[in-house]
């Protein structure tokens, strides 16, 4: 069963956060290993597995990016995989070249000082939100391919942001 089914929620991006919270707490309590102290070892094991699945499902569904990536995976595109078939879609040359140039710009900004880094950082944060928005609207139109492309673009941008954060902390 997928994470949505496990938590009794419709398989879609839009999610009622309160309903997710309630569904998780109810089910997690019912499956809690403490309730199975006197049960057979098979029942204990199955309760433990169910708890682990619920925790994993909750962790994925409550996070907007992970939820979007998970919907792509259910549609047959695994953005965690580098396989050409069914893995993360490859980006075009122009995009990759732009990513190289922007990484180089981080090196320049480091020499210029903190305010140059902050400026770059603010821009990237806006683009991250924009990429997720594009992924969500593609998912809502049932276009998981385009959603996966936007999510992969987001991953490259996330790495750029991580690097900027490392620079700021240095």
């Amino acid at each position: 069963m997928d994470h949505f089914g496990l938590l009794g929620l419709p398989r879609q991006y839009a999610i009622d956060r309160d309903a997710l919270e309630r569904a998780y707490l109810e089910r997690a309590q019912a499956a809690h290993p403490d309730r199975f102290v006197g049960a057979s070892s098979a029942e204990q094991r199955s309760a433990m597995e169910r708890s682990a699945s619920l925790n994993e499902g909750y962790r994925v569904l409550r996070d907007p990016v992970r939820r979007a990536e998970y919907l792509c995976r259910l549609a047959g595109i695994d953005v965690d995989s580098s396989e050409p078939e069914g893995g993360a879609p490859a980006m075009g040359q122009a995009f990759l070249m732009e990513m190289i140039e922007r990484r180089e710009a981080v090196e320049d900004a480091r020499r210029e000082g903190p305010s140059a880094l902050d400026e770059l950082r603010d821009g990237v944060e806006g683009e991250l939100d924009d990429a997720l928005d594009r992924a969500v609207s593609a998912l809502q139109q049932g276009d998981s391919r385009r959603a996966a492309e936007a999510l992969v673009e987001r991953r490259y941008l996330q790495r750029l942001l991580d690097e900027l954060d490392d620079e700021v902390e240095r």
């Binding site: 953005v79 965690d80 995989s81 580098s82 893995g87 993360a88 879609p89 490859a90 980006m91 990759l96 070249m97 990513m99 190289i100 990484r103 180089e104 992969v152 991953r155 490259y156 941008l157 996330q158 790495r159 750029l160 690097e163």
Partner: peptide, 29 residues
Amino acid sequence: VGAPACGDVMKLQIKVEGGVITDAKFKTY
């Protein structure tokens, strides 16, 4: 080239003279 799953990017350049690579440079993030 890029690794879509992790966001790594790599640029590799070659200088070619007479069919032979005489220089090569890279930048990998």
